[in-house]
Deep mutational scan, measured.
Amino acid sequence: SELMNSSKLIRMLEEDGWRLVRVTGSAHHFKHPKKPGLVTVPHPKKDLPIGTVKSIQKSAGL
């Protein structure tokens, strides 16, 4: 199965306009000026399962 580095996923979010608002432990929480909701990324993780990545991307509207 495909894995993604959390840094790469965070870069994709930031390029889309998401900004880090809070860190709780290894959970990084992002908000967007125009899009609704809060997106949480486990970080640092070298090997996020593709299912997790897809669900984060979906929440972020990517």
Rank of each mutant, 00 (worst) to 15 (best):
L38V: 14
M4F: 11
V39M: 04
L9D: 01
E2N: 12
L38Y: 13
I56Q: 01
I56N: 01
I50E: 15
G17N: 05
T52V: 15
A27N: 13
M4Y: 09
Q57P: 01
E15F: 08
P33K: 09
K45T: 07
G37Q: 06
K34G: 07
L3P: 15
K35E: 01
M12L: 10
I50Q: 13
L13V: 05
H29E: 14
K58F: 08
K31P: 00
K8G: 12
I56S: 01
L13Y: 00
V21Q: 06
S59T: 11
P36S: 12
H32L: 01
S26P: 08
G37Y: 04
L62P: 02
D47R: 11
K58R: 10
F30A: 00
I10Y: 02
A60Q: 02
G25R: 15
K31S: 12
G61S: 06
K58I: 14
L62M: 07
K46D: 15
G17F: 03
P44I: 04
G51D: 15
R19I: 13
K45R: 15
K46L: 10
G61P: 01
D16A: 06
K45A: 07
K54L: 09
I10E: 02
L20E: 05
P49T: 08
I10C: 03
G61N: 06
L62W: 05
L62Q: 03
S1F: 06
V39I: 12
A60M: 05
S1G: 13
T52D: 06
P44W: 03
Q57I: 15
D16K: 04
D47A: 14
L20K: 06
H32A: 00
L9Y: 02
P33T: 07
G61H: 05
K31T: 15
H43W: 04
P44L: 04
K54D: 10
S59A: 15
H43P: 02
L48F: 05
K8D: 15
T24R: 08
V53I: 10
S7A: 12
H43E: 03
K54W: 06
A27G: 06
H28V: 13
R11G: 11
V41N: 00
L13P: 00
L62V: 06
A27P: 01
P33Y: 09
F30T: 00
S26C: 09
K35H: 03
K58T: 11
I10H: 02
D16C: 04
V53G: 02
M4Q: 13
H43A: 03
G61M: 06
L20M: 09
P44M: 03
L38A: 07
G17K: 03
L3A: 14
R19K: 14
S1C: 11
R11Q: 13
P49V: 04
D47Y: 15
P36L: 08
L38D: 08
L38T: 12
D16L: 05
M4A: 09
V23Y: 07
A27Q: 15
T24S: 11
K34M: 13
G51T: 12
R19M: 13
T24Y: 11
H32T: 00
H43Y: 04
G51Q: 13
T52I: 12
V23H: 07
L48W: 02
K31V: 14
L3F: 11
D47Q: 15
F30V: 00
K45H: 07
E15G: 08
W18K: 00
L13A: 01
V41E: 00
